[in-house]
């Protein structure tokens, strides 16, 4: 009997699913299937016969999946991983990372422990990537606002770029606001005066 477990990933986020799939393959798990189409979820699960299923917590289909397991006669009953009281730490780590797992009943805990740990760490990596990306995007947006506000001040008040920037900064400090907030106010006000 092959020692390899069949792992099914249900995730509509292409990047995150890829991050997890790569991680699992690197760790020697070759039998990994990713499902993105939620319409035929049950059929895919029946066809795949997974030992372990991962689904992200943002997916509203979690409730669908759980009921399928309860009523389906065709699927080997996978159950929520959170059935063992001794594993509350692991459960908490998984929920914190944003993933939940369903494991076929009767599977030895030791066999899935490392897979679970790996999945949690991959989800964490993805979360970090995403928050960095969000931060970068936000910074870009803020810079755009400031540039536009500077442009308005330069045109309306005949300032050079440096003076316009200094003016915005001073206003932000006096009003105890973020630079981007002041910039937004300038842009909004300029629209009103048009």
């Amino acid at each position: 009997m092959s020692d390899s477990l069949r792992i099914l990933i249900v995730d509509q986020n292409v990047t995150r699913a890829a991050v997890l799939e790569d991680g699992l393959r690197e760790a020697g798990h070759r039998d990994v299937v990713v499902v993105r189409d939620m319409q035929n979820l049950l059929k895919r699960i029946v066809d795949t016969e997974p030992d372990v299923i991962f689904i992200d917590l943002e997916n509203p289909n979690r409730d669908v999946l759980e009921q399928m397991f309860q009523v389906s006669r065709t699927v080997q009953r996978p159950i929520a991983m959170f059935v063992d009281k001794s594993d509350v730490g692991m459960t908490e780590a998984a929920v914190n990372a944003g993933v939940s797992a369903y494991v076929v009943d009767g599977l030895k805990k030791e066999r899935i422990h490392s897979i679970l740990e790996l999945t949690i760490s991959r989800f964490k990596v993805f979360n970090q990537l995403r928050s960095e990306l969000d931060k970068t995007k936000q910074q870009l947006e803020e810079r755009k606002l400031v540039d536009r506000a500077k442009g308005i001040l330069m045109k309306e008040r005949g300032l050079n770029e440096e003076q316009a920037y200094a003016l915005l900064r001073k206003a932000a400090m006096n009003e105890n606001l973020k630079l981007s907030q002041v910039a937004q106010s300038v842009i909004t006000a300029a629209k009103l005066f048009k």
Binding site: L57, P60, N61, R62, F82, V88, T91, V95, S100
Partner: peptide, 13 residues
């Protein structure tokens, strides 16, 4: 987005 999330987040506190 799901009742399962409500349940699990209650469980882990």
């Amino acid at each position: 987005t799901s009742w399962a999330n409500i349940r699990d987040r209650m469980m882990v506190g």
